[in-house]
Design a protein around this nucleic acid. Sequence first.
DNA 1: CCCTAAGCGAGACGGTACGTCGCGTCTTTAC
DNA 2: GTAAAGACGCGACGTACCGTCTCGCTTAGGG
Lengths: 207, 207, 207, 207
Amino acid sequence: MEQTDIDTPPEPLLKPGRGRRRAEDVRHAALTATSTLLFEDGIRGVTFEKVAARAGVSKVTLYKWWSSPGALAFEAYFSALEETLAFPDTGDLRADLTTQLHALVGLFARSGGTIAQIVGAAQSEPELIEALSNQYVRRRRDLAVERLGKALEAGQLRPDADLDAIVDQLWGACYHRLMLPALPEHPVDEAFADALIANLFGGIAPA
Amino acid sequence: MEQTDIDTPPEPLLKPGRGRRRAEDVRHAALTATSTLLFEDGIRGVTFEKVAARAGVSKVTLYKWWSSPGALAFEAYFSALEETLAFPDTGDLRADLTTQLHALVGLFARSGGTIAQIVGAAQSEPELIEALSNQYVRRRRDLAVERLGKALEAGQLRPDADLDAIVDQLWGACYHRLMLPALPEHPVDEAFADALIANLFGGIAPA
Amino acid sequence: MEQTDIDTPPEPLLKPGRGRRRAEDVRHAALTATSTLLFEDGIRGVTFEKVAARAGVSKVTLYKWWSSPGALAFEAYFSALEETLAFPDTGDLRADLTTQLHALVGLFARSGGTIAQIVGAAQSEPELIEALSNQYVRRRRDLAVERLGKALEAGQLRPDADLDAIVDQLWGACYHRLMLPALPEHPVDEAFADALIANLFGGIAPA
Amino acid sequence: MEQTDIDTPPEPLLKPGRGRRRAEDVRHAALTATSTLLFEDGIRGVTFEKVAARAGVSKVTLYKWWSSPGALAFEAYFSALEETLAFPDTGDLRADLTTQLHALVGLFARSGGTIAQIVGAAQSEPELIEALSNQYVRRRRDLAVERLGKALEAGQLRPDADLDAIVDQLWGACYHRLMLPALPEHPVDEAFADALIANLFGGIAPA
DNA sequence: CCCTAAGCGAGACGGTACGTCGCGTCTTTAC
DNA sequence: GTAAAGACGCGACGTACCGTCTCGCTTAGGG
């Protein structure tokens, strides 16, 4: 079967050569083992050595598909996150943004630590930060800006608003509290998300 | 017998041999070597092994003072950053915020990568993230909120503005672009800082 | 950035017990602690570090009295062995040798391992092997040869017997089995001691 | 060649069918480096760290094949000693024993210190003392006892002689003087070997 | 339907770094 | 003054993981 895979890795050199069967199951085993390790010990527990042992996969095979343990952890985690990128468009921008941010803080509540660890690890791996940008950050930003653009056209935004900056001031603010926490009194919850939207929509300058 | 000094020598010769050395000297040597390594190879190059070799300091001593190479890198970098915490108060909030954010993006331009790596490494080290919070994030946030509080009292802010969220929507937005970049078209520069302030002050809702 | 927990060196505990103490008390405390460690963990467990901690004695003091942990272990063990050097003289040489050798194998049964470890450690420490020679080996050998000399004069030995070699062929044979064991079938027991004496007295050449 | 692999490490890990074959050259490099270190600095100079550095071998590999630096030193030294186990049989027992003991004292003259250090180190390492027993002591003892047995059958020994004890009273006496020396006046030389044989053959009791 | 060559497991190997222990030297501080 | 407490450089230990490299089994594609 020549079925082309949709969720193929970044550049899996799948040569049409001969040999053993396609290793889709091998990849799956590796990703499953990685998820377990990621959940148990955090990203520090995701090593090629342990993944190979748990998944019954050789280290060489892991190297073939992933450039580092961080890249493996990234794929294992974010590959199951596709649906969260979906952006609603009910016509009411503020409501849609609220929905999206509530979903984000909900995700952070469930696995914010893992996300922070992966993003953190990427800071020292250029390949990984690029993968994050291409496969996650940019896509989400594009969808958001697209939605904001529609709202702008619909007259729901000030004409001089900087749409890209809005993304940073909503999503970025959440990531900031996730990765640079100050106190438990500053949680990343729905109230915070609402405050972000209120600040930004109404402005902070006196009326 | 005659060579024993009764007076404590102000500058005891620190021979590279064995024996006890002053804690401050040791710490300084370690931090200097760490800075060099941090600049050369990034945080991945900061290992206790290399720092010990370069600084002429034993690994055990490093373990005593710092819980991990990340903690050492953190202190080596942020200990020289005291001045950036200063927050101006000219009476004009918007101008002061602009000044501060311009300083931040200037800092990011010089050593944003290093900062990102340190913050990133902290995500997998509870002790380090706590140190970051206590010694850096919280202090800066407190200063900012204090300044914002004065502005609020002076009637320069909407009474219902969420001051804490403002911090995330200005500084956090910058950190977001630093650590989760999308494209080179989205730099962290002064124009971006200005856009953040404009968005937030004027609000993004149509007038 | 000052006055933080990682910046502050641990303050020295103010405990009583410092200052001058009597040398004999210190020595006794050190030897007692050493005996305990020697019994618990063997000679590998006898380190200046542990002895100092257990005995409440500083390492410098230990260096003053003993050149190495091995020397300390040696003294701790052999200082309580003085009496075994006593050599009986009943007039009957063979009976006296038997008595002595039985005492030796009895000693080996109780603490042969410790003796072997101390003698073994001495092989790599010239100072220790010299101490062993001076304070133990030579004294015991002299006593034995003296006793054998008396027997020779009394006509209880062949005139051409090599007295020094006899010592090696009786005591040395026991040490050989202790330190270079072949099989459990070759124990160092009284029967072995008797065999040594029988072989040596009667000769192994056919009558 | 039906050469059995006597040189193989304690545990024959070679199972038919799996994994990479052992690199004999790696073992050889390690043993060569060890011999050099053993000759230069004694057994204290034989550390896994130094051997790894000199031989270009990783520490992990050393740990896999040898349980301790002592075990490595043991094999490096005794593996080149195979021929000395050969035991002559000219029909004249006394002459053969003299030949053997002269060879032993000659060996001690050349490298007695090294032997003593290895045997000494083994006293604190159960695994090493067992290896010494199995691969050296027992084999030599068996060959000696076998030769003595032949002599006994040939009527060259008293029927009631204890053959095992003879070994201790000849070889053991030499080891005793090697490891528990009393004075330089008691060397381990051929004259001493001759005295041992004379004492034992003729007996020390008066005629 | 066998032969052959690639894919893959298993894991040996040289490295780097970790975190710990002990040695011997040196400083500080209490008695 | 002496001795405790202990900081410190140093060397070695034993372990974990990395990235590379062979082996030999397994299987599919080509003959």
